[in-house]
């Protein structure tokens, strides 16, 4: 995701539940945490957790969305050509919170029953349409999908897991790929 995302407004209790669950995920090293433990950490009754999040999947998806919007919130980019910098920064932050990065990456890969896989899409589309309005629909979508794919926790997971890259190399490679995507539109900005 890039820039401000649309995140549903949370009640104070809900925010406390999600923060407690995220904290426990990092401590336990897994999302396999009981509702009882989440309730205790949030300082509320277990039934209050159930009332807000009836199933484990509901809780996990809400938490993943919350993590992206808070822990991994992007600084707003004002140009599509600044996105590689935002991606570089995002990779470094995923690397600081690996368990949370895995949760965010995995919940976005569940299909329709999962979290939205491209939260930053509307923001990217606004930037691209304002700066490079001359693209045809297929070119426009190609740029958007490639940048959405790169600006995500899945990039960090894949580069680390498949190539054993460290923080610096992941940030470098992800930004490099994003620059490549922008090469095709670099000199096509509207006057």
């Amino acid at each position: 995701m890039t820039g401000p995302a649309d995140v549903p407004a949370l009640s104070g209790t809900q925010a406390a539940i999600l923060a407690a669950y995220a904290e426990l995920i990092e401590e336990v090293g897994s999302d396999d945490v009981s509702f009882r433990l989440v309730a205790r950490r949030a300082g509320i009754a277990e039934r209050t957790v159930f009332r807000n999040y009836p199933t484990r999947v509901d809780l996990l998806l809400a938490t993943a969305t919350w993590i992206e919007a808070t822990v991994f919130a992007r600084e707003e980019s004002h140009s599509i050509f600044d996105i590689p910098l935002a991606i570089r920064d995002a990779m470094q932050r995923y690397d600081e919170r690996p368990e949370l990065a895995h949760v965010v990456a995995e919940t976005a890969m569940r299909g329709v029953s999962g979290a939205a896989p491209s939260l930053g899409r509307p923001h990217l589309e606004r930037l691209l349409d304002a700066e490079v309005p001359s693209l045809d629909e297929v070119q426009r979508r190609a740029v958007i999908v490639a940048l959405c794919h790169l600006d995500s926790a899945a990039t960090w997971v894949t580069f680390r897991r498949e190539f054993g890259m460290d923080r610096r190399d992941i940030a470098d490679a992800a930004a490099w790929a994003a620059e490549a995507v922008l090469d095709s539109i670099r000199d096509r900005v509207a006057l």
């Binding site: 890969m109 299909g111 329709v112 896989p117 999908v145 790169l150 995500s152 899945a154 498949e162 890259m165």
Partner: peptide, 17 residues
């Protein structure tokens, strides 16, 4: 790394969903 990531099931899943 880029070729790997864009040829993944993740790329397919993101674009489909």
């Amino acid at each position: 790394a880029s070729l790997r990531y864009f040829s993944s099931a993740m790329f397919w899943a993101r674009l489909r969903t």
